[in-house]
Simulated scan of single mutants.
Amino acid sequence: MTLPSVQLNHTVVYSSDRAASAHFLAGILGLRVGAPFGPFLPVDLANGVTLDFYQAPEGPIQDQHYAFLVEDQDFDAMIDRLEAAGVTYYADPAHRQPRQVNTLFGGRGAYFADPDGHNMEIMTVPYARP
């Protein structure tokens, strides 16, 4: 059976302040925030996927998980930017190992929270799947 060609094009990231959240993540990852597109503030990733930050209506924002595959040579700069911003990073998704980096699958990885509590992950090697 031939599977259709399907790619993720964009996803919406709900935030209490779309500009603050978009600039926070773009700053940590070393990216730029694009021009507003309707109610969205985009951050383009290298693989063509766009994170569209959206100002959520009042009320709690359901936290989500976003994982970013990054180049090993960029990882240290991202950790440095987290430290400079006073943001604690963790080796684990439950945030129990502060200021530590994991070495899953022979790479390096870390988790941190964005201003709305979304659990962001940076990793240098994708997870192995059977």
Rank of each mutant, 00 (worst) to 15 (best):
T2M: 12
T2N: 08
L3S: 12
P4N: 11
P4V: 03
S5P: 01
S5L: 06
V6Q: 09
V6G: 02
V6P: 01
V6R: 10
L8A: 12
N9Y: 09
H10G: 01
H10F: 02
T11D: 00
T11H: 02
V12G: 00
V13M: 07
V13Y: 00
V13P: 06
S15L: 01
S15Y: 01
S16N: 13
D17M: 03
R18S: 05
A19Y: 05
S21N: 14
S21P: 02
S21Y: 00
A22L: 04
H23F: 13
L25V: 08
L25T: 02
L25E: 02
L25P: 04
L25A: 04
I28G: 05
L29H: 09
L29S: 08
L31E: 09
L31F: 01
R32L: 03
R32K: 07
R32G: 01
V33H: 08
G34C: 07
G34E: 08
A35E: 15
A35K: 14
F37W: 10
G38A: 09
P39C: 04
F40Y: 15
F40L: 08
L41R: 10
V43P: 08
L45Y: 06
L45A: 11
A46Y: 11
N47G: 09
G48W: 10
G48Y: 05
G48N: 14
L51I: 05
L51W: 01
D52F: 05
A56V: 01
A56K: 11
P57F: 00
E58I: 05
P60G: 14
I61V: 14
I61F: 01
I61Q: 06
D63E: 08
D63R: 10
H65K: 10
F68H: 14
L69P: 10
L69N: 14
V70Y: 12
V70H: 13
E71Y: 03
E71D: 12
D72I: 04
D74F: 00
D76S: 11
A77E: 10
M78T: 05
D80N: 15
D80W: 01
R81E: 11
R81I: 05
L82S: 11
L82D: 14
E83L: 11
G86I: 13
V87C: 10
V87K: 13
Y89E: 07
Y90P: 04
A91T: 03
A91K: 04
D92H: 05
D92F: 03
D92C: 08
P93L: 04
P93T: 04
A94F: 04
A94V: 08
H95A: 14
R96K: 12
R96S: 09
Q100E: 14
Q100Y: 00
N102L: 06
T103M: 09
T103Y: 12
L104T: 13
L104G: 07
L104W: 14
F105S: 15
F105H: 15
F105A: 13
G106E: 07
R108S: 12
G109R: 03
A110M: 02
A110R: 03
F112V: 10
A113M: 14
A113D: 15
D114G: 06
D114E: 11
P115N: 08
P115G: 04
D116S: 09
H118R: 07
M120I: 15
M120Y: 02
I122R: 12
I122G: 09
I122D: 08
I122P: 11
M123D: 01
M123Y: 07
M123G: 02
T124E: 06
T124Y: 04
T124Q: 07
Y127I: 14
Y127K: 15
A128Q: 13
